[in-house]
Design a protein around this nucleic acid. Structure first.
Lengths: 339, 339
DNA sequence: TTGTAAGCGTTATCAC
DNA sequence: GTGATAACGCTTACAA
């Protein structure tokens, strides 16, 4: 009883034939409309009999809806490896989309080749909307989304105020100010910062918050400028700081990963934490509790960020206007052992 | 000169009208066929003039090809957060697919709801193939792929030998045996293992390799069985081991994350590493170099696993038969400081 | 070289 | 309630 191998895919047409009704009636039971009990029964039997599986491409073409939303992270290579936040944001977004019966498809863009392909993908009708994470100031992908008026939401910061795409984020400057003040309250005299990603709003804002908290005590020399929010940058940044100011006794690292790297550099230099130098991070990611000592840090509600962004997209998909008020989520300070 | 806001999407038809040719000719320049220089020029001008963007859904319907390949990770929640390998595998797969001009779309499945939706998505014609990571023994997703004969490849281990879907992986048992032997060569007398994920082939194989390496010295009591390859499991597993055998002086952890957790438990218990106890991990992930001391471990070529899997899928897409010989990649031992 | 027309698998708008 | 029939936007024989 072996069936022929390359079985042709059954269509609505086949169901109709098998059940002895018209395609219209089949479509009605598939979607839901008025249909008699007998017809429904016959059709349902036929469906399993012929092994029907709906064709999304055809449905998308007709409906102009794919029930899919893209999740795209505009980040350098290391992101998926070094930034634990992204995973939580993704999971949060997926959960929210899932509840609304939408498929989240996440796209990675690493190269110029990727950028073009993803741009085409987004504009081609395979997705109804997009969630964009950590957008750089200007990116071709953003232009495409904006030009097409693709329902979208940003996580992090709006890439360009002139484009009215809603975003959900946190108050980076305020949070940075708050945790720096807390660090200062511990009696630290010479506190510096490892400032990362100054090509991005979040990076700039965190630096501004730090400067703000220090006020007149701010010293340009005590800011080490590193490219990425990652571990390696933390090591490098801390080394630079130690060289410039051996008497440094407090550090605000732009992220937990950076702080973890800084911890290594301090260990290598024979400084104790929090004894010789107190250090605070940002994110409250898994890094924070992995470190020795565990990090005092700013809690970033990554999962909620993701689900809010998803809501923002779903809202537009339902035809409701995107809210003009952008959303900033709370970022409580979590005080542990590193300062 | 403000254009009307909700501009209707331009189609091939519109281009044809604007350029004064037929749809067929337009399609020919879009894809590549014989077309005169003048016609081509006129059409190209028209394309930018009307702001044409191709409709993937229509193209996919007609061509029966979407130029997209799914990447699906069948793992519990914590995977994207705790397993650094997955990111590298993804990036490797994306790079390979990108070169072949295919869009990788990664799908996360966390709930039963996700499972159903993803299964529908995979079967609906939005993707031409799928890469499946760390498949559990039996999963509805796998059935769907197999039933539809969707071109696919597994990373890790074949979920069921009867289904002829190719896979690429590593020799877990052999690698585990090799690193355990190396650990024993250091003169350790009482060595145990934190065995994770024994519901998965990789978990079972690593345990088998360990048992094999110890030979008659193998002691069931010195195996702590934990559910996941993660940090928290490592902490728990190590505590259990210390309780059962305080004189333990060597540990093989089923993954680097587990080893990192074990390190914490050892630190808490006041044992020095590698002095009091030597520990080795598995994966050579970012965990390995983050730890204090850095881990001796088995290098898992994550990125290569991803690109091999991609090749396997692309091969089938080109109509070439999937290789019958499954691929096992090399796993060199990296010896650092933890043992 | 170019135009014409058919059809991919659905859903939706009609009459019946 | 149900059955024809016309799109959706695209590619591709087949003619011209």
């Amino acid at each position: 009883m072996s069936r022929p191998k390359p079985r042709k895919r059954a269509t609505v047409h086949d169901i109709a034939a098998a059940a002895g009704v018209s395609r219209g009636t089949v479509s009605r039971v598939l979607n839901g409309g008025y249909v008699s009990a007998e017809a429904r029964a016959a059709i349902e039997a036929a469906i399993t009999e012929v092994g029907y599986v709906p064709n999304n491409a055809a449905r998308a073409l007709k409906m102009r809806r794919s029930q899919a939303v893209a999740f795209v992270a505009l980040e350098p290579h290391s992101l998926f490896l070094d930034d634990p936040n992204i995973g939580s944001i993704m999971l949060g977004a997926n959960a929210a989309l899932s509840l609304a019966d939408h498929q989240m498809v996440s796209l990675v863009v690493e190269s110029a080749r990727d950028t073009d392909r993803v741009a085409r993908y987004l504009s081609g009708g395979f997705v109804d909307g997009a969630i964009v994470v950590s957008a750089r100031a200007r990116d071709p992908i953003i232009r495409v989304i904006s030009d097409l008026a693709l329902p979208a939401a940003f996580v992090g910061h709006p890439p360009d105020l002139s484009q009215n795409i809603p975003f959900v984020g946190i108050d980076n400057a305020g949070s940075a100010r708050a945790i720096t003040k807390r660090l200062l309250a511990g009696g630290r005299r010479r506190v510096g910062m490892i400032a990362a990603a100054l090509d991005r709003d979040s990076g700039i804002d965190r630096l501004n918050g730090f400067r703000d908290a220090l006020g007149p005590a701010f010293d340009e020399e005590l800011v080490a400028d590193v490219p990425l929010y990652d571990y390696a940058s933390g090591v490098k940044g801390m080394r630079a700081l130690l060289e410039r100011e051996p008497a440094i006794d407090g550090v605000f690292a732009a992220s937990d990963a950076v702080a973890a790297g800084a911890l290594e550099a301090l260990r290598d230099a024979g400084r104790s934490v929090p004894g010789d130098v107190g250090i605070v991070g940002f994110d409250d990611s898994t890094w924070a509790v992995r470190c020795q000592p565990q990090l005092s840090t700013v809690h970033q509600p990554a999962s909620e960020l993701g689900s809010w962004a998803a809501q923002l997209v779903l809202q537009q998909l339902r035809g409701e206007p995107a809210p003009v008020e952008n959303k900033l989520l709370d970022t409580p300070i979590v005080w542990r052992d590193s300062a």
